[in-house]
């Protein structure tokens, strides 16, 4: 079977299965288990209605339990065992992590990523949203900025490998350098410390589009009158933007910011593809990958550390998002 056909069959089975499940489950509930007949039909109807939500929730709960709750518990349990899972070593993996300088480098780099990427993406997205809002070719510009969102992290990394390539004929950076008269090409992803920022640029490039789309919608939701009132109050465009518009969408900005933060803590592909964690660019997810299948105990311990770091950001994100919806 061709992959295309395979995909279509999968979609058909998936969607058809969902529809079929809800239809059949409802039918079973209403006709067989609690039919609206017999001695007390009213009670049967209310019983059926009490059961129905659980019926609808059941598949989702089963899937979440199987693919989220069980892995969390299982991972934690695995992280308490040694390399091959043969013997229980308690928190041994965690103490080893704390003692490993490579882990500390990854933690420090990850901190940089968390500080820079969400801030830069959100800020650039906000500026892009505002600047593209009122111009004729704004929508074209928006599509261009949004397009990287559609590229996988690995794909994006490959594109940027060309940008950073260590040869003036291929690499954009070195081509510009050559154009400016510099002789020898440089390998930007080997420059210590700064190379981390060059890797961040890839994720910023991808995430700016996301931030722009969400913030653009938020900016459009601001009542025009408040902006007109600010014009009458004598505010210049910068004051209007930063003192009247941005404060009105802080909630959305926080949601975008935290969403990107959570993503940053999970992305390993870019580092993995670009440097494989070499040249001091390691971050936690790629550090975890480097131990996977070699020392699953330690890899799951790293996974757990990442989860603990993401959790508070996630909680805040959800709280903010809920507040926005109200």
């Amino acid at each position: 079977m061709s992959p295309l056909l395979q995909g279509m069959v999968t979609i058909l089975i998936g969607v058809g299965g969902c529809v079929g499940y809800f239809y059949a489950a409802n039918l079973l509930l209403d006709r067989v288990i609690f039919p609206p007949s017999g001695r007390d039909p009213g009670r049967n109807i209310s019983r059926a209605n009490a059961v129905r939500p659980w019926l609808f929730l059941a598949p989702a709960m089963a899937a979440l339990g199987l693919y989220l709750v069980y892995p969390v518990v299982g991972s934690f349990w695995r992280s308490l065992y040694n390399r091959d899972g043969g013997s229980f070593i308690g928190l041994g993996n965690y103490t080893d992590l704390a003692a490993d300088p490579a882990f500390r480098t990854a933690l420090f780099n990850n901190l940089l990523w968390v500080l820079v990427v969400p801030a830069a993406s959100t800020f650039l997205g906000l500026i892009a949203a505002q600047l593209t809002d009122r111009i004729r070719w704004g929508n074209i510009a928006k599509s261009m900025i949004f397009m990287p969102m559609a590229i996988s992290f690995v794909g994006a990394s490959l594109i940027w490998k060309f940008v950073y390539a260590n040869e003036a004929d291929i690499g954009l950076i070195n081509a510009i350098r050559a154009g400016l008269g510099f002789q020898d090409p440089i390998d930007v992803i080997q420059i210590p410390f700064w190379n981390t920022f060059f890797l961040m640029a890839i994720l910023i490039w991808i995430q700016t589009g996301f931030a722009m789309v969400i913030l653009s919608a938020a900016l459009r939701g601001i009542p025009d009158e408040t902006i007109e009132a600010a014009i009458l109050d004598g505010a210049n465009p910068f004051q209007i933007f930063f003192r009247v518009m941005v404060p009105q969408i802080t909630g959305t900005i926080v949601v975008v910011w935290t969403t990107i933060t959570i993503l940053v803590l999970k992305v390993f592909d870019i580092v993995y593809t670009m440097t494989g964690g070499n040249f001091g660019t390691q971050i936690l997810p790629s550090y975890m990958m480097s131990y996977m299948f070699k020392d699953d105990g330690r890899a799951t311990a790293v996974a757990f550390v990442i989860m603990l770091i993401v959790l508070p950001v996630m909680v805040w994100n959800i709280l903010q998002a809920r507040k926005e919806m109200r």
Partner: peptide, 21 residues
């Protein structure tokens, strides 16, 4: 002349207060 320098002030139907201030 820009609105702010015309010596006018406007009261809007929707009040147009700055919600964050």
């Amino acid at each position: 002349v820009p609105p702010a320098q015309r010596g006018i002030a406007m009261v809007f139907q929707s009040y147009a207060l700055y919600p964050h201030m």
